[in-house]
Amino acid sequence: MDKVGIPRGLFYYYYGDLWKCFFDKLGVSYIVSPNTNKEIMDRGIKVSNDEMCLSFKVFLGHVDYLKDKCDYILVPRISNFGISNQTCTNFLGAYDIVNNLFDVNVLNYNIDLDKRETLKKGLFKIGRELGKSFLDIKFAYLYAMDKYKEKVKKDIEINMERLNSKNTKILIVSHPYNTYDNLIGMDIVKYLNSQNVDIIYCDKFDDSITSKLSKKISHDLYFKYSKNNLGAAIYSLDKIDGILFISSFPCGPDSLANELLMRKIKKPYVNLIIDGDMSFTGIETRLESFLDVIRRNACV
């Protein structure tokens, strides 16, 4: 039996690579739940409240899948990244919800920069709970952080290269846990790729630039991830041909921030809301007509 289980949902798409590097270097065995499939989603829907957002249901499905396959399940809590940089409420409550719903040992850390709880502190806490020495943890942390930063940099470079290509370009405005999820966003990405469209991902931009840029559209917005999305949209607005919004039903921050963005930009866009029961054919039809509009615009 592996020691730590990492659910492939929500946090995984932000910190997955970091965690994997960290545990590898630390010598802790771990298991990552497989790509989301119908069975996992059904499991999630079964245990969760029916009004929860689809991404969170999927996350709970992954936790349910892992519950008897490992000793600990890693569920962090992310409250904020300083003033005006809050996260969605589900990120705040994830730990307590999992703890109450499942009878498992939860490996937990807290990111709350308002109260000086940082990622570093969190990873050190985890290391100690797994019974590792201070030096081991420090080496693992530095190594993982290095790799993580390198990867982020590389991702941004690839994204920027694509942004300057001459092909038809579409910006996907969505949270990474929706874009890269096998059931929620991956079909859409695959379809666009097959249509010979260059996809720009809004989560692969430099945070420090995008959060500043978002002020141009919204002065009061205080959700960090939504801020990054808006900033990315403004950054690339002149270079892209259209924007594709993907959100899971019913996403809290998206319902406000995306609506504002849609009202303020003058570019073709399409808003896809995924609720788990939809067939892909309906989405495909909408994407097809969207691409037609974009290509006609480009010709004119």
């Binding site: 409240n49 929860m52 969605c88 409420t89 919800i97 109450n100 719903l101 019913p250 809290g252 319902s255």
Partner: peptide
């Protein structure tokens, strides 16, 4: 659609 309350209901 009140997210915090939905989470806490269970």
């Amino acid at each position: 659609f009140c997210t915090p309350e939905i989470g806490v209901m269970q």
